[in-house]
Amino acid sequence: MNAEQAQQILQNYRPRVDDGDPQFTAALALAKSDPELAAWLDAHCTSYEALRRKLRQTPIPEDLRDRILARQPVRARASWWARPAFVAAVVVAALGVNLAGYFVFWRETPVIAENNFAGYLQMTTVWASGGYSMDIKTEDAEALRRLFAERGSPTDYVLVPGLAALSLEGGNVLGWEGRKVSVLCYQKTGPAEADVWFFVAERTTVPDAPATEAPRFATANGLATATWTRGDRLYILAARGSRADLEKLL
């Protein structure tokens, strides 16, 4: 393979996304030893990231998530007692054949993939960076705790010191793998106005989350995030801005 052929192949290469794709392996290896090709690849990757960033800025309608959830049809599994399959199973059971009933009732609930910390971080930051509406808009921290208590999400969280200086705007309860996550939404007022989100989950909700009380920083979906665990709680603090902005809040 020469540099021209490698460049042709790498036209479709996406940094990070295609790193494990074997169709790019040889061309990427060549770029490491060819400075001219390496410079072209660097420019290609920068251009790709710039375009990707722009496209991901498409604003999401504020109420879309709620509209989707409101339109969720009543799932057959939720109203199991009304399912024809159940009725049939009862009839069959009455006849002494329990196999069908067993199948209907004991089939395992499907497991959604990406039940890991990366998936959780992705969910929280996509939610925060997209359009959303708050379940409750309030400046009253206790009213928010009451909502969390009613909805069964964590209430015994410890806020980071910097949040005391921000304006509480409200909160949400999100779902993740059958568990509930408390979200507190804050706004930083003043010249550098910005939204800040504080996510609290049970530690066991995301078993592979970093088990550290020292915050770990990352960027996801355009947000700076800090993650830590304390007691049996997993915390994520997210904001538009940089790691330095978050560190001021911790």
């Binding site: 999401i60 879309l64 998530r65 989707i68 959830l69 969720q72 799932r75 599994r77 939720a78 609930t109 499907p110 959604i112 990406e114 998936g119 992705q122 969910m123 996509v126 939610w127 960076s129 997209g130 359009g131 999100l174 779902g175 993740w176 793998e177 059958g178 568990r179 509930k180």
Partner: peptide, 15 residues
Amino acid sequence: LPELEFEGLVNRYYA
């Protein structure tokens, strides 16, 4: 709960 599984998927992919 099925509805939580659904909500988790919505949160993750709707945007």
